[in-house]
Amino acid sequence: MRTDVTFTSNGLKIAGHLYLPEGLGADGAGAAPAPAVVVGHPGTGVKEQAAGLYARRLAEAGFVALAFDAAYQGESQGEPRGLEDPGQRVEDLKSAVSFLSTHAAVDPGRIGALGICASGGYSLVAAASDHRIRAVATVSAVDIARQFKVGPDGTQDPAVFQGMLDAAAAARTAEASGAGDQTFTLFPNTAEEANLGGPHSFEGWEYYCTPRGAHDRSAKALTWSSVDRIATFDGLATVALIAPRPLLLIAGRQAVTSWMSVQAFQSAGGPKELHWIDGASHVDLYDKDEYVTPAVAKLAEFYGTHLGTAA
């Protein structure tokens, strides 16, 4: 069962979809409190895409699951639209935990987090400092700062990001002069242009810009003011603080971003596990059933072991 919910994060109304296991009423009344998982979406996603798919599948496996739109994006409040603020994204995850902690269907002592793509990095930071998160997992984890600074494969010339910081500084001055919100586009216009950026660029374009995964509310542009906020974030810096709570990192064998999951694993204490999905790329794990199904099975096993299952 899916219900529309809202909660507050730093004074902003956050829109979410709450997925309940079969047999639980909308308010959870009459049932033993169940374990729950907060699911964070990729950097340009919305709750109706990968996060919603994983939340629904986790509910089918017996967990209460909450997918939500980040502040400034999707159906959630916040201006300017398209702002990617890592600090706010971490706060959104913690606020989602607060929402679940007070829900009648949820056992507040059995709440976990799942971060997909950029929310992988955000969930690691949230879990490091919020002990209410009893188990944390990631799928195709990305530290958004590393991706911007050195690219998805880690080989980007650092001068590229320095140029982006120049543009971000100029955009702030323009906004102060009354020019309005300054933004930059995230995706090429055509498949041919996307192909020029390589397979990772193409599969991102294909997911977000074609019927495969496109959604009207997913971000196609970010504000330039996102860039200098991203510059000082580090999604992996505090991974060691998660221990002794358990950590699971799921990555595709073919994902160019998998080095970030490896780094997170190496930095973590324990218990920890790096689980590979053979044949999968980064975006394959967003929606392709042949890869999502084994990923969900591993997640259900992980959360079942560390959070228990619904009565």
Rank of each mutant, 00 (worst) to 15 (best):
I133H: 05
A96R: 02
L247R: 08
L83P: 13
A32T: 15
A159S: 15
K149S: 04
M260W: 07
P199W: 11
S267A: 15
F63P: 11
V97K: 02
L53I: 06
T238E: 15
G78R: 03
H275R: 15
Q156I: 01
W205N: 05
P33C: 12
T102E: 07
G115A: 06
H306T: 06
P80M: 01
P294Q: 14
R57N: 03
G180E: 02
T293F: 07
T210L: 02
D216F: 12
K272V: 11
A61L: 05
P86I: 08
E79Q: 15
V38C: 00
S101R: 07
M260G: 07
G197V: 07
G252V: 09
W224N: 08
S261W: 09
G112A: 06
D181A: 10
L100F: 00
V97E: 01
A214Q: 14
G115S: 08
T305F: 02
G11I: 05
A141N: 12
S225W: 12
A171L: 07
A34S: 12
R146K: 11
G178P: 13
V39P: 09
E60G: 15
A127F: 08
C117T: 09
I111H: 01
F7K: 07
R229G: 08
G197Y: 06
P294S: 13
D27G: 14
D92H: 13
G25S: 15
D216P: 15
S98Q: 08
R217W: 10
R89W: 03
F99P: 00
R212T: 04
A255H: 11
A145H: 11
A51F: 00
A219G: 08
W224S: 01
S226W: 08
D130A: 05
L299I: 10
G52S: 05
R245L: 02
K13A: 13
E48F: 06
G151T: 13
S226Q: 02
Y208S: 01
S218C: 05
D27P: 06
V46R: 10
G235C: 09
A310H: 10
